[in-house]
């Protein structure tokens, strides 16, 4: 809240000339994934100056990660993976705006700033003409699972100078440096934009186990075995007691 007040004060103090600009912040700069993590909501808020009431788009994106998309086809009576494409796509992507994007964003501006989903996914290796259907499938599957979201009425404008929106992060969030981008739009074109970072990290036991599994896989494997043997031993012992 203090951060929010500071931001407002900053904007009010700035000369209100012809400059069209937007600044924003998040209610937290980092998200910690611990063993009880079940999703979290982050608040994106900020202030803007514009000549006419603008449209506002907020995107929150996970770090781009390589993914392989495979298409099944029937071979000898069974459905097998027959074709594939490699893309670089965020594991999480949310777009919130003051109005549905089709109405407020021009295709040219969308392409240039990579705002909507097909543009935010980069094709790495695929046959010509193939990649589009693969990227569309990726967006379709991840939209269905809730990893990709689009809400055309989620950004709220307050008093013509402030805006806010809440972005829900899903419970199966992955680690990385997330980015929040805010675009000020007028007649389909971007007139100002702003970006800020959000750090998502595993903490505590989650972090310890993940690091151990990747840095010292042999130790981790032996530990897993030791736990299994101990549990088996303990169980046998307990049941032995019950039998007597």
């Amino acid at each position: 809240m203090i951060r929010a007040l500071g931001l407002v004060a900053l904007l009010l103090a700035a000369p209100a000339g012809n400059a069209q600009e937007v600044i924003a912040d998040l209610d937290q700069t980092s998200v910690s994934i611990d063993s009880t993590f079940a999703g979290q909501e982050i608040l994106v808020f900020g202030a803007f100056t514009a000549d006419a009431p603008p449209d506002i788009v907020v995107t929150v994106a996970g770090p781009p990660e390589p993914a392989t998309i495979r298409r099944k086809a029937r071979r000898m009576g069974i459905w097998v993976n027959a074709a594939q494409a490699e893309v670089s796509a965020p594991a999480f992507y949310a777009v919130a705006s003051t109005a549905p994007l089709d109405a407020i964003l021009s295709p040219a501006a969308d392409l240039r700033h990579a705002i909507t989903l097909p543009h935010a996914v980069r094709s790495v290796a695929a046959g010509p003409g193939q990649s589009r259907s693969f990227v569309e499938a990726l967006v379709r599957i991840r939209t269905a699972s809730g990893a990709y979201r689009r809400d055309g009425e989620a950004v709220e404008v307050i008093g013509g100078r402030l805006f806010r929106t809440a972005i829900a992060l899903p419970s199966d969030l992955t680690e990385g440096d997330y980015a929040a981008r805010i675009f000020l739009l007028s007649e389909g074109a971007v007139i100002a934009d702003y970006a800020t970072a959000l750090e998502v990290r595993k903490v505590g036991l989650e972090r310890f186990l993940y690091r151990l599994a990747h840095d010292r896989p042999l130790v981790y494997g032996l530990m897993s075995l030791a736990i299994a043997i101990a549990a088996g031993w303990g169980a046998a012992g307990l049941f032995g007691l019950f039998r007597r």
Partner: peptide, 17 residues
């Protein structure tokens, strides 16, 4: 059944190689 009948979604996202 899953192998023989056409799946509702022909595409799937796999881990990267």
């Amino acid at each position: 059944y899953d192998l023989l009948v056409q799946p509702a979604e022909l595409y799937e996202i796999g881990e990267a190689e």
